[in-house]
C-alpha cells in the first residue's frame, strides 16, 4: 500500500498506531509546508503540549549529536519514547544538504541494553534557507511528535559559532554544549550564552582545559547574580558515554523547576507567540508581493522609476492595500 495516496487524517490514524512510515511521511508534509502541513498542525494541536521539548545547541563539532544519541538511548532504556529532530544546514548555493547527525545516534540506540530502537524516532532536517540554526518546520515537527506521545522531544540545532540561535523560542529546556578551549572562540558572546543556556555541558571533558572551561563558566554565572535557576555545568565524554546520566537528570530537574515556578507557561506562551508571528510575517510577505503586482502597485513602481515618488512614499501609498 502506498502512503502517498493517504489523506492527512488517515496518515495520522496510522501514525498514532505506531506506523513509523506514516510518521515519516507526515514529517515530509510538515517540511513541505502549505495546506497539508497546516492540516497536520491543526489536527495535532489539541493533543500536543505534553512533551518536554529539549534543545541541544553549541559550536560545530562540539559533540551535540553524540550527546543527543547517548541521551536518547538512555531515555529509551528508562522507558521513554523519544523523538529527535536533528538539523544540519542546507547549502545556500544549491539547496542540497548532507545530513550527518544521525550517524552518531543510531549506534548507541541500537547497542544500549534495554533501549528498544522502536521507541526512538530520529528525523534529520535541513535548514532549507532558514537562519538561526533551526528549520521552519521545527515547531510543526515537534508538535507532531508531541501529539503522538513522544516525550521528550529533543532538537539538535545546526552547529553555530555564535550562540544566538532562536532555539529558546522553540524549546522548554536548552542545553548548550561547549568544549575545552571554547572560551577563546566565543569571548564576545558570553552574555548571549547566559541568556540561552539552562544547562551547560562541557563535552570532550577528557581533554586538557576541561576544568578551565568549567571555571570560566562558573565565573560567568557568578556575574549573573542569583537567578531562580542557576544553570548547572556538567562534564561529559559523550563518545565514551561518561556523564550522560547527569545531563539527563539535570534536564528533568529543570523541567521540575519550570513547572514549579510556573515558567513553563511563560515559555510556552512566548513559543506560541513567536510561531504566530513567524506565520504572520510569511502571510504578510506574500501579500506584499501580491500588492506590488496589482495595477496600482505597478503604477506606483512606475512613478518611482520616473523619480516622481521616493521609495518610502511608494511604500506608504501601497501599505493600505497590503
Amino acid at each position: 500500500m502506498s502512503l502517498r495516496s493517504l489523506t492527512v487524517d488517515e496518515l495520522l490514524d496510522q501514525a498514532s498506531k505506531g506506523d513509523r512510515r506514516a510518521i515519516g511521511r507526515l514529517l515530509t508534509l510538515v517540511e513541505r509546508g502549505g495546506e497539508a502541513a497546516d492540516q497536520v498542525a491543526k489536527l495535532t494541536h489539541p493533543d500536543a503540549g505534553q512533551a518536554h521539548v529539549v534543545g541541544i545547541t553549541g559550536a560545530p563539532g562540539a559533540g551535540k549529536s553524540t550527546l543527543t544519541g547517548r541521551l536518547a538511548a538512555g531515555l529509551a532504556a528508562a522507558g521513554h519514547r523519544v523523538a529527535v529532530v536533528a538539523i544540519d544546514p542546507s547549502s545556500p548555493l544549491n539547496g542540497g544538504a548532507i545530513l550527518g547527525d544521525r550517524i552518531r545516534m543510531d549506534e548507541p540506540i541500537q547497542t544500549t541494553e534495554g533501549a528498544d530502537p522502536s521507541n526512538v524516532f530520529i528525523r534529520s532536517m535541513a535548514t532549507r534557507g532558514q537562519s538561526g540554526g533551526l528549520a521552519v518546520a521545527v515547531p510543526g515537527a515537534v508538535r507532531l511528535f508531541d501529539a503522538l506521545g513522544f516525550d521528550p522531544v529533543i532538537v539538535e540545532t545546526v552547529g553555530v559559532g555564535q550562540i544566538e540561535v532562536d532555539i529558546t523560542a522553540a524549546t522548554d529546556t536548552t542545553v548548550v554544549v561547549v568544549t575545552p578551549g571554547w572560551g577563546d572562540a566565543v569571548q564576545a558572546n558570553k552574555a548571549g550564552l547566559l541568556e540561552v543556556a539552562d544547562i551547560f555541558v562541557v563535552n570532550k571533558a577528557e581533554r586538557p582545559g576541561a576544568s578551565d572551561a568549567r571555571r570560566d563558566l562558573e565565573l560567568m554565572l557568578d556575574l549573573g547574580g542569583h537567578p531562580a535557576w542557576r544553570p548547572p555545568i556538567l562534564m561529559t565524554t559523550a563518545v565514551d558515554n561518561v556523564g550522560i546520566d547527569d545531563v539527563s537528570a539535570a534536564i528533568s530537574t529543570h523541567l521540575g523547576h519550570l513547572r514549579e515556578s510556573g515558567e513553563i507557561e511563560a515559555r510556552r506562551a512566548v513559543r506560541a507567540r513567536s510561531e504566530v508571528a513567524t506565520r504572520l510575517h510569511a502571510i504578510l510577505l506574500a501579500r506584499v508581493d501580491e500588492t506590488m503586482a496589482t495595477p496600482e502597485g505597478q503604477q506606483v513602481l512606475a512613478d518611482l522609476n520616473d523619480g516622481v515618488v521616493a521609495p518610502v512614499e511608494a511604500a506608504h501609498r501601497l501599505s493600505n492595500d497590503v
Binding site: L93, N94, G95, G96, I103, D106, S124
Partner: peptide, 21 residues
C-alpha cells in the same frame, strides 16, 4: 557531495551498516 551539490538532501550513514538499519 556530488548529490548535495545537485540539490539532494543526503542522509549520510557511512560505514558498517546493516540492511535492517
Amino acid at each position: 557531495r556530488l548529490l548535495r551539490d545537485a540539490g539532494f538532501e543526503v542522509i549520510y550513514l557511512g560505514l558498517r551498516q546493516t540492511t535492517d538499519a
